[in-house]
Nucleic acid binder design. Structure first.
Length: 594
RNA sequence: GCCUUCGUAGCUCAGCUGGCAGAGCGACGCUCUCGUAAAGCGUAGGUCGCCGGUUCGAAUCCGGCCGAAGGCUCCA
């Protein structure tokens, strides 16, 4: 029989995080209560608190509609007004099995619970199998709103039935709720898909294909600057750049193991004259070919092979998104062939230092290093070689600590052939995405039988470090658009300055100003349209052009330009030589702001 | 791939229960030649995502497909 558990909580004494979790979880109960009233046949899944709110999963006889959501919300508010107490009870397995005999998901959960720790929670007429963590009564729920309906697999596995998930947001006060909605609105303004279209950086077309980015001239300029920059940084650090084919025989990827592990993520095979070809999903096998073109001495190692090449990955249709998740991408990739683990350590260290320099220059702050580990239990997903995994994981952990970077560890996030360090960042919409990875690979050298000649004259097996730094140009530019909200620093800005002649008669002088600046390879436009000056200034601001140079009679007379900085600050008239020097310096130092 | 929602001019969107396809912004042209965030007037622009069905008649109703957004799963 049910044994009540006394559980009064003084909410005010709890840390805010705990208090919110209780409110959100309790709200999920109230949502389930409302749902059972709307559809008594509803089968209940789980209803946990999440960041910013809660959800509850149900299997229902029909799809939910927007109207249902409104009804549920109204019904929930009614429960709030009644201040119904949440009452926890301990029950036996037999009681639970009897009570939930018509609830298959609850029975599934029950099978994981230990005897003696089976509890349920009742408020009003609604009872749910639950481990606890509530507020005292439904009057303490705070401000909430049901936001969306989505599909979600039971226990998060594609193999299980798909349930309908109702999402809600919940905060302690109405003000905080509204504040959250304002932040969401702000995030939408920063969205790279929106800014990318407004600033004519890139476009996507149905007939070109989902995830196939078309870079427009302005976006291609940003892309080119990033490419030149990273290639120069790599050259300074002893990388050798190569160029390898976009298409290879399928056989190459069979040998590497990609075909076994990732054929579903590859474009379909092309077949002619009995030969099978595939678009490359990644560089590793090609760079291994580069290595194999010669017999290498230990004196040549580490050998750093780099390429900005196109990768082609068949992302499932539901997960292609803007420029941050695409099917054809240009990857800043390199493979470092090392003689031994000591070299691996110093190379990984070098990559981490390069990353810090690059992200620092770009002004990125919201990223974190993640040590991504394998799962020894999962022999299907990962190459089965426990000592190799242990050695790799220990090594990466050691280097992260040595360089003094903060990092966290995550299980079951490794590559199929080895552990890795991932750089994780937050998108404007608040989603966690992987920017790049560093991987230690003992597997491919074995698979391809790679060798080098050691000091002892004998053959030895190298170790490969796979690494990216600026990710794919698509994902990096998407990230930068959101980071800068379209206000690119001068060195990356597609148009760096625009000359605005006040009247048509000032156009020739305007062209002179532009020509002068172009001698320093600055990207300058002259706005010679027949609009009024005010309209042109507004247009330049909307286009987020860093410098607006107004020229009229006074400037033409004095050989100057009236300088206005993006955002509105007026620097007044400047001599052209001074202006050129100022812009050149700002560009060459890659300054983040004027 | 799965669930939900959505698809009308370059962009943002209106178009009720089936009855002549619209607005604002943008583009283009003309007038104006202007001193720091939108001058005035005019013109063009559409297979209402695609294919099929119902109907005298479909942007509107039904089915299929394509694409997008959010979520789930996945992510070398």
């Amino acid at each position: 029989m049910a044994v009540p558990i006394e559980e009064h909580v003084d909410l005010k004494q709890l840390p805010q995080e705990e208090r919110l979790a209780r409110m959100r979880h309790s709200a999920a109960h109230v949502l389930a209560e409302a749902m059972v009233e709307l559809m008594p046949e509803a089968e209940l899944g789980i209803g946990p608190p999440i960041e910013n709110g809660f959800y509850y999963d149900f299997r229902l006889p029909r799809p939910l509609t927007e109207e249902d959501l409104k009804w549920l919300q109204k019904r929930m508010r009614k429960s709030l007004g009644r201040r119904l107490p949440f009452q926890m009870e301990q029950i036996t397995r037999e009681e639970a099995q009897e009570r939930w005999k018509d609830q298959p998901f609850k029975l599934d959960l029950l099978s994981d619970l230990e005897d003696g720790s089976i509890t349920q929670c009742t408020h009003g007429k609604f009872t749910d199998l639950c481990r606890g963590g509530h507020v005292n009564h439904t009057g303490e729920l705070g401000a909430f709103k049901l936001t969306s309906i989505a599909g979600a697999y039971w226990r998060g596995s594609e193999k299980n039935p798909q349930l309908q998930r109702v999402y809600g947001i919940l905060f302690e006060t109405e003000e905080e709720l509204q504040d959250y909605e304002r932040r969401l609105e702000e995030a939408r303004r920063r969205d790279h898909r929106r800014i990318g279209r407004d600033l004519k950086l890139f476009d996507l077309y149905d007939e070109v294909g989902p995830g196939h980015v078309v870079w427009l001239p302005a976006g291609a300029t940003i892309r080119r600057e990033l490419m030149r920059w990273i290639e120069d940084l790599e050259l300074e650090r002893g990388y050798l750049h190569v160029s390898t084919p976009n298409v290879s025989k399928r056989e190459l990827y069979v040998k590497s193991g990609h075909w076994d592990h990732f054929r579903d993520a590859m474009y379909p095979v092309m077949e002619r004259e009995g030969e099978e070809y595939v678009l490359r999903p990644m560089n590793c096998p090609s760079h291994i070919m580069v290595y194999m073109s010669d017999l290498h001495s230990y004196r040549e190692l580490p050998l750093r092979i780099a390429e900005l090449g196109n990768m082609h990955r068949w992302e499932k249709s539901g997960q292609v998104s803007g420029m941050s998740r695409v099917r054809i991408m240009t990857l800043n990739d390199a493979h470092i062939f090392c003689a031994d683990t000591a070299q691996v350590e110093s190379e990984v260290e070098g990559v981490l230092r390069l990353m810090e320099e690059v992200y620092g220059t770009l002004g990125l702050k919201d990223y974190a290093y993640r040590l991504s580990l394998g799962d020894p239990e999962n022999k299907e997903k990962y190459v089965d070689n426990p000592p190799m995994w242990e050695a790799g994981e220990a090594l990466l952990r050691r280097v992260l600590q040595k360089v003094g970077l903060d990092f966290y560890e995550a299980k079951d996030e490794a590559a199929f052939y080895g552990p890795k360090i991932d750089v994780q960042f937050q998108t404007a919409a608040g989603k966690d995405e992987t920017l790049v990875t560093i991987q230690v690979d003992f597997h491919f050298p074995e698979q391809f039988g790679l060798e080098y000649v050691g000091e002892d004259g004998a053959r030895h097996r190298p170790i490969i470090v796979h690494r990216g730094v600026i990710s794919t140009l698509e994902r990096m530019v998407a990230l930068l658009i959101e980071e800068y909200e379209g206000n690119f620093p001068l060195w990356l800005a597609p148009t760096q300055a625009i000359v605005i002649p006040i009247a048509d008669r000032h156009i020739p002088y305007g062209e002179e100003v532009a020509a002068k600046l172009r001698t320093a390879r600055l990207r300058v436009e002259v706005d010679n349209r027949s609009d009024r000056m005010n309209a042109k200034i507004r247009d330049a601001q909307m286009r987020k052009i860093p410098y607006v140079l107004v020229v009229g009679d006074r400037e033409a007379e004095a050989g100057q330009a009236a300088v206005r900085v993006r955002g509105g600050e007026d620097l007044g008239p400047m001599a052209l030589d001074d202006l050129l020097e100022k812009l050149r310096t700002e560009r060459d130092t890659k300054a983040l702001s004027p």
